[in-house]
């Protein structure tokens, strides 16, 4: 998987590394901003109010 990604990326090693870092940063931002806030309420650790069952 990652070997294929490495082959697809263009340019010399330095450019490929920079592109990989950029891709990783995009993944982190997407997760922090959208994915994690969506799935967090499904976990049983965060529900601080009392309510009728």
């Amino acid at each position: 998987m990652y070997a294929a990604l490495w082959r697809v990326l263009p340019g010399p090693v330095a450019v490929r590394l920079a592109l990989l870092l950029l891709l990783a940063a995009v993944v982190v931002v997407v997760c922090f901003a959208w994915v994690f806030p969506t799935i967090a309420p499904l976990l049983p650790i965060n529900d601080p109010d009392v309510q009728a069952p």
């Binding site: 998987m1 922090f32 967090a40």
Partner: peptide, 25 residues
Amino acid sequence: MLGELLVTAGALVLLFALWQFWWTD
């Protein structure tokens, strides 16, 4: 291939923990 997927999944879980227990604060 499977190994890479599992490692990736593990990294994402760790990333989630980092988000939940640090970034939300």
